[in-house]
Design a protein around this nucleic acid. Structure first.
Lengths: 248, 248
DNA sequence: CGCCAACTTGATGGCTGTCAAGTCAGGTGG
DNA sequence: CCACCTGACTTGACAGCCATCAAGTTGGCG
């Protein structure tokens, strides 16, 4: 329901629930940098939501691509399956991040997106997003930046997979998570992992046993405190040092 | 046929040299899918070229981002440098492919682009490209597809680095090169590598000795014929089989 | 002709994969 | 409420792939 926004007091719950203009993830998400008028246009576009239960797919590889998705709440993984049965997690996504950019290329999704906890996404019909970004320069530019950021992120992962050893990879992974949780107002030092050791390993190009051993080692060295999926980071500089430890 | 340049009667050299509308890489490059009117608008935008000598940088990490580049002729690599001195090749680019998309994100380039042979690029000022893609729907959409394709490609490399063994990686690499040469009208079975074993290794997350050994092994098995940088592919199905060989 | 970078090939070692056994935590049903 | 069950995790022993170190070869170029 496209209600007119007036003073703060009169904003109804339904508006709060459906508008980018009232979403606390603005700064992390698509609306970044838009003015009020532009934001209200985006509100019309991003009007539908979808809830995804833990373990369910948001989309699957091969499905026709129609929309991209902004994560409103929750946590996802994306993974790719090779013909020979091998698969790999290509990323973990959290609130404010976009899903589905891979599908633009061929008009079909090239990976699976699975919720790792009960989640909610905003559905952004892609043709309409292209239409609106022809009108709104700031939206167009920001969208391009988001796509580019994804490319840069992937290069970082390639770097990690190509040059780092197991413990360096895990340190980089933990520091990255910590930083992203911080950007969302959560503790930078304490969080629950939403994914299994196997999924972490898949993402980092390691076996789950290696991930487990690295966690144990970090704990022995006083870098972190692990209890199953609960992680407390005790020594960020220590992890950073470990990550950039010359290994020639 | 696309590579055969007729010394056409009326067309002056300067026109041939500066117009997308006369470029034989249209189908691989930015102008894909544009009509004549649109093409001529793009011609105005992409008016300047730049020659890059072998070994020279097209841009460097950290430099301000202003333009993306379409490779008119030649061969490039992009690489990323970590603070601790480690570096990795993130890609090899050939004619018709775009360079510089990584810079949109932060307005600064995040990697180096180096010519591996004497090359020439078309300079595409990014703000003007955004402007034109607000006018030309087909251009906008194709540009989005190109960026998305880059993301999908990177996922493929992550897959390779995360799950494949040395010989599988090299087989995948050769098949990919073969396919891209084919798309450009060159032989799919015979080509010169523009990069060193060390650069191949860096890209594939291997050491140069491992790359060299894998080449030798492929030769022993009759899959390819190697003589330094000259490669002849003798058994494509064999390479494919090797690449997808179940390794659990 | 000689130099040098790129490459090849061999020997050895270490990181991480593999296999295996055991522990822990959460959920279900009696 | 507790026993049980199952998936997730931890830990150990061993092996294999690839990195490392080293020496030699090739080809291009001044």
């Amino acid at each position: 329901m496209p209600l007119k926004k007036t003073s703060a007091q009169e904003i109804t719950l339904s508006v709060i629930k459906t508008a980018c203009s009232n979403c606390n993830l603005q700064e992390l998400c698509l609306p970044y940098g838009l003015n009020e008028t532009e934001m209200s246009k985006l509100d019309e576009l991003v009007s539908t939501r979808r809830k995804i239960k833990r373990g369910d797919h948001l989309y699957r590889a091969g499905e026709a691509f129609e929309s991209i998705y902004a994560i409103r709440a929750g946590f996802f993984k994306t993974d790719v399956l090779l013909e020979d049965g091998r698969d790999q997690v290509t990323g973990f996504q959290m609130a404010g991040e976009l899903l589905g950019l891979d599908g633009i290329s061929t008009e079909h999704h090239s990976c699976n997106a699975v919720a790792l906890e009960d989640s909610e996404v905003c559905i952004i019909p892609f043709p309409r997003l292209e239409g609106l970004s022809r009108e709104i320069v700031a939206l167009q530019h920001h969208f391009h930046k988001v796509m580019s950021r994804e490319i840069v992120r992937d290069h970082g992962v390639m770097m990690l997979l190509g040059t780092m050893r197991a413990e360096e990879r895990l340190a980089a992974f933990l520091l990255n998570l910590s930083q992203r949780f911080t950007a969302r107002g959560y503790s930078h030092a304490e969080f629950y992992l939403r994914m299994t050791r196997e999924e972490i390993g898949s993402y980092l190009g390691l076996k789950l046993e290696t991930v487990s051993r690295a966690f144990s080692r970090f704990q022995e060295e006083g870098l972190i405190a692990v209890q199953q999926k609960h992680i407390r980071i005790l020594d960020i500089p220590g992890l950073k040092k470990l990550m950039t430890h010359q290994s020639a």
